[in-house]
Nucleic acid binder design. Structure first.
Lengths: 184, 184
DNA sequence: GTCTATAAAATGATAGAC
DNA sequence: GTCTATCATTTTATAGAC
């Protein structure tokens, strides 16, 4: 039962607990217990709990975009690709253990750590750029210009994610998708 | 220097710290120290830290809608009233110590407490109803129906609030306002 | 590199005097 | 109703053996 290495097991366990319970309520004790490793092993691989959090964010960032790109790869047509952004979110939100956006949750809990905030901003910034690229390729009724449409999609997705986590449904994301469809 | 009562001072201090720092990082010790009251006085007025959190949420809920209604009272014209929703947010976000939505922050930090989640849902639900009422009175280009327009405004405001807290600006809310203006 | 043992501080909460 | 003193836990982190 010790297939994975110690460092991976620490990060896997910490990631799960940070996401499901929150960062501050998750103690080092719970992490070492559930990862089944010694206390000093954790501090050998990560110099502090904060460093573990940063590792979690970095890894989530990469996994998130890898998943998005895998989802988008087979989707053809500029219009369909824009709408697929919503389908991607609905797919994520359909998972039984979905609890909201990893980054928004950590950002809401963060009290002043600039390194943490930096990671969150980088993640959201990159996604916003991604949306802009898709929108620039898609034809649409010119009620809004390209930049406005991209901003609108970004804000609708953020709003639907927050509301979805609160009301435990992906209904908001479906509504957001229908709204955007009226513009394409 | 003891103008206000003990109970008020506890709630004032706890509210400020919960909002500025977060709920879980704020300890009982810090609250009693900054409120300048005895430890047992806190537990006389509030049976637990959770109860103090619920009192904070209830009071924020009422203060929030009181402020909104004060802001909206002088605004005339159905179209202007819809747009004033954005001005209200921009006004709030312009405050130097604005750190995001009280309720979203607590919701993101909350791990399973149903009483807490209930308060957040009630707050957001009531605001959504408020938007629907305004939209139903406002004429608009019928690109979207009334309900869709109200949903869109709600989601844009939620998204702009989350993004605004992250990027420390009200730029997102101004963009959201311009987008909605295209429909009125 | 992994372990056990432990430190030092902070956590939420209670008892009992005044 | 407010106070001081104290409780049992839990927190993050380190020392030193193997």
């Amino acid at each position: 039962m010790k297939e994975t290495g110690v460092k991976d097991r620490i990060l896997d366990t910490a990631s799960r607990l940070f996401y499901e319970q929150g960062y501050h309520v998750t103690g080092i004790n719970q992490i070492i217990e559930e990862a089944d490793i010694a206390r000093a092993s954790l501090y050998h691989h990560f110099i502090s709990k904060t460093e573990l959090l940063l590792a979690y964010l970095d890894r989530s960032h990469e996994a998130w975009f890898r998943e998005l790109e895998d989802f988008m790869r087979p989707v053809e047509g500029a219009r369909e690709r824009v709408l697929a952004l919503f389908d991607h979110r609905i797919m994520r939100q359909s998972r039984p253990n979905w609890k909201g956006c990893n980054f928004n949750k950590i950002a809401a809990e963060n009290s002043g750590d600039e390194q943490v905030l930096e990671r969150v901003k980088r993640h959201k910034g990159r996604f916003r750029t991604y949306i802009r690229t898709l929108v620039s390729e898609a034809p649409h009724k010119r009620v809004l210009d390209d930049e406005q449409l991209a901003d609108m999609i970004f804000l609708l997705l953020e709003g639907a994610t927050v509301a979805g986590a609160m009301f435990r449904s992906y209904e908001e994301t479906e509504k957001a998708k229908k709204i955007v469809e009226s513009f394409l």
